[in-house]
Design a protein around this nucleic acid. Structure first.
Lengths: 118, 118
DNA sequence: CCAATTGTTCAATAAGTTTTGAACTAAGGA
DNA sequence: TCCTTAGTTCAAAACTTATTGAACAATTGG
């Protein structure tokens, strides 16, 4: 059970920019960046919308190549594809995250720690 | 006769990203960046679409704060708001332009020189 | 003044995006 | 096995964006 992701060289600039041009998704990326190295499941983002709606936005991010989703039991562990994005579009992710860093117009993620299934 | 532009501090990250997430507009920005300092009118971009459609896309870019349009006679001279964007979102425009730089999936602008009204 | 040039606006349509709830699948634990 | 948890899928509705052609405005040049 793996989910489809584009290869690094298939990541498209206009698609990435379009996907990031949505406040909910930008908030997801900002939060992922702030927790880099930590495994996050979808429920971490419930502050941003309904379960169904998050599934939609997280699929958009994954299909654009911005995030990676790994299946761990019933969880999908979400990470930023930082190395891939840096390789493909040097500096882009950093400048987006820096710009989003303190934007009060973006929704915020509460961020509860979660226990993973052993 | 001046056209409305947002102030630098009113430029919104998600709006800028959304506006750049369109191949036609990304091509416009790439071409403007390649001709920085040169005055360009809308007709320069007719390779990318109809006059009406360009008017629409150029208005989107202007309203997002990505470009500036100055009225000179019957022309609108278009420039990139590079300094404003660099001030607001450091590094963002550079990385977008670099990433777009050699993307064969983006439409290209022919680029004829034009004679301005004296 | 008249005609040409440059670009905008309008209304219509076409196409795509976001959001929702209900139904569903898959894994894990009691 | 049965229940719970995590997340997806589907179809519908609501909304937004892109594209077109016809009509319009404003300036310039003859």
């Amino acid at each position: 059970m793996t989910l489809p992701h584009p290869n690094t060289d298939q990541i498209s600039l206009p698609i990435v920019l379009g996907v990031l041009g949505d406040p909910t998704r930008l908030a997801i990326v900002r939060y992922l960046a702030s927790k880099e190295g930590v495994a996050l499941n979808c429920s971490q983002f419930l502050d941003l919308g309904s379960k169904t709606n998050l599934s939609y936005h997280l699929a958009k991010l994954r299909e654009a190549g911005v995030t990676r989703a790994e299946v761990v039991g019933t969880n999908r562990m979400i990470t930023l594809r930082r190395a891939d994005l840096d390789a493909r579009f040097p500096g882009l992710l950093d400048s987006v995250i820096a710009a989003a860093g303190d934007d009060p117009a973006l929704p915020a993620v509460g961020g509860h720690d979660i226990e993973l299934p052993a």
